[in-house]
Design a protein around this nucleic acid. Sequence first.
DNA 1: GTCTATAGACTGATAGAC
DNA 2: GTCTATCAGTCTATAGAC
Lengths: 205, 205
Amino acid sequence: MNVRSYNLCPMARTSGSHSDITGPRLRAAAQRLFARQGYAAVSMRQIAAEVGVQAGALYNYIPDKQGLLFDLMKSHLDDLIAAWQAEAKGQNPLDALECFTRFHIRFHLERPDAVFIAYMELRNLEPENFAVIEDLRKRYETVLEDILRAGKESGVFSLPDTKLATMAVIAMLTGVTTWYRDDGRLSRDRIERIYWNMVRKAVGA
Amino acid sequence: MNVRSYNLCPMARTSGSHSDITGPRLRAAAQRLFARQGYAAVSMRQIAAEVGVQAGALYNYIPDKQGLLFDLMKSHLDDLIAAWQAEAKGQNPLDALECFTRFHIRFHLERPDAVFIAYMELRNLEPENFAVIEDLRKRYETVLEDILRAGKESGVFSLPDTKLATMAVIAMLTGVTTWYRDDGRLSRDRIERIYWNMVRKAVGA
DNA sequence: GTCTATAGACTGATAGAC
DNA sequence: GTCTATCAGTCTATAGAC
C-alpha cells in the first residue's frame, strides 16, 4: 500500500527503472494474451513485447512462466471470494439465491479474460498449484451449495439433488461468458433478470 | 468401407506397412493427448511415441498438426449432429425437450475427450477452420432453439427469452462433463433424470 | 531494472534411404 | 509406410554489462 511516486518524476525515460509500472503491465499483458491464445501458445518474448521490455526483464517480477499463470488464477479466485463476502448479507434462501445469481453473472462479465483463464488453463497448472486453485474453486461452489441446501431444508426450494443443482446452476450462469458481447441485444441487467427467472424456476421456488 | 485385411496377415511385424491401423491409432492418440495437455502443449513426437512410430511417419496420414486438430473437431460435431438426427422423431415440444436433454448428456458423457477438445481448442483453429466448426456448433444449438420456440409458441413452455434459454440449457447440460466420474455417486441414467427435472422446471413446463 | 547474448533443449515439417 | 537425419526456427531461463 505504498504511495505511488512515479507521477512525481519530472523526466520521462524510455529505459531504466520502472519497477512500479512494469509489474502490473506484465500481469495485464499476460492475462490478455493467455486468454486469447492460451498459456502454452504464448511466449515470454510475446508478453515482453506487449509490455515494452526485453524478455529477460520479466524475471525481475516473476519466478517463471508457471508462477505467472498461478498468480493470475489465484488472484482471480481470491477476488471472487472476497467480492462475494462483501456482497453477501444475512438473507433468506430465495433472496440469497437471487443475490448470488446476479453477483455471479455480473462479476464474471466484468472479467472475461480472468474467467477464461481460470476455466481453460487448469490443466497447465503443476500439481501443487492445481490443488490450491481447485480448493478455492470448491470453496466458491460451496457458497451456492449452502444456499440451495438451506432453501431445500426450509421447503422454499424443490430440488431432486442439491449437489447436481449446484453444478447445474453454476454451469448455466458461467455459460453467459461464452456468448455475451458488449454490443449485444441485451443489457447486463436484463440478462441477470432473465437468468434469475430461469434459476428460480429450476430450483422450484 | 473396405474389408479390413490385416487380421489375415500371418506375420506380426514391428515395422513396415501398417496403413490400416496407424491412421486410427494416430487419431486416438492425438485425441487423448490434446484433451489432457492441450493442443499447443502436445508435440508431434509425443503423439508418434504413443502410436509407436517416428514423427515423420505421421505425415503420411495428416497434412499438418492443424489439419489433425480440425479433423478431430469436425468428426466430433458431424457425429453429434448425425446422432441427433437418428434419435429425433416427430414429437411434441415437451417430449422433444426430454429427448434432447437425455441425448445431449448421454452423448457427451460417452466422449469426454472429444467434447473437451471441441470446447477448449476453438482458439487454436485457423480462421477458415474455425468458421466451419462454428457453423456446425450453431447448427446443433439451433436444434434446441427450435424445440424451445415451438414449445413457447404452443404455450407449453414459459420462457422470458428463447435464445438465452437455449444457451442456458446447453451450458447446464454440457457442464455435466466437467464433474462426472464413472465411479461417482450417481448413474448416468439417474443424472439424466435429475437434469431433465431441472430443465423441465426451468422452461416453465 | 533493463539490456544483450546465449545456453540447452525443443518445435513442425521435409528429404531421401529402404 | 516407416525409418533416420536434418533444417531452420522456436522456447524458457540465466549471466553479466550497464
